[in-house]
């Protein structure tokens, strides 16, 4: 099963490598990982997507908690939450395809960020499946590159992952 583990971690050099090292040393799988500073500059927030059976994910959570730099963590998949991923796609365009790509982008509530004579850069945010669907809807031969942030998430309601 897919799990989204959200981690508050000390914003210190090497903290990221402790998390990444743990996953490789214990043979856990990372589907995506993103990290950035929070409103408190001493803390970073990391969102990690992993897959595994219940026992493996329980171990992942325990092992992460054991890292001294990890302040708190939560498995977002366990309760109602919102998930978003950012994607940018660079697409080869011709005068024939431009309209189609623009309308497709609109349908997916994306934006054309950059335009050159032969390309578009489309920006899109949403759940990962929506981004998958957009990529699938475009002729693969026209895709120059795809950049995705990996999902990040937040729980619904008043509870939050904070100190």
């Amino acid at each position: 099963m897919r799990h989204i583990i959200s981690i508050l971690i000390e914003n210190e050099a090497g903290a990221l490598s402790r998390v990444a090292g743990l996953f490789s040393a214990r043979g856990y799988n990372i589907e995506s990982l993103n990290v950035a500073i929070t409103e408190d500059p001493s803390l970073s927030r990391m969102t990690l997507v992993t897959r595994g059976n219940e026992q493996i994910v329980e171990q992942i959570v325990k092992q992460l908690n054991k890292l001294i730099d990890v302040v708190k963590l939560v498995d977002l998949a366990e309760s109602p939450h919102i998930e978003r991923e950012l994607m940018m796609v660079k697409i080869k365009t011709t005068s024939h395809t431009r309209t189609e790509i623009r309308s497709l982008t609109e349908i997916f509530r994306g934006k054309v960020l950059d335009v050159t004579a032969t390309t578009y850069v489309v920006e899109m945010t949403g759940p990962s499946e929506k981004l998958d669907a957009f990529v699938a809807a475009i002729d693969p031969d026209t895709i120059i590159e795809v950049v995705r942030s990996g999902p990040t998430g937040i729980s619904r309601g008043e509870n939050g992952l904070c100190l």
Partner: peptide, 11 residues
């Protein structure tokens, strides 16, 4: 004392 030692290999 270490929660990670519990149910690691044996439930």
């Amino acid at each position: 004392i270490d929660p990670a030692s519990i149910s690691k290999t044996v439930k």
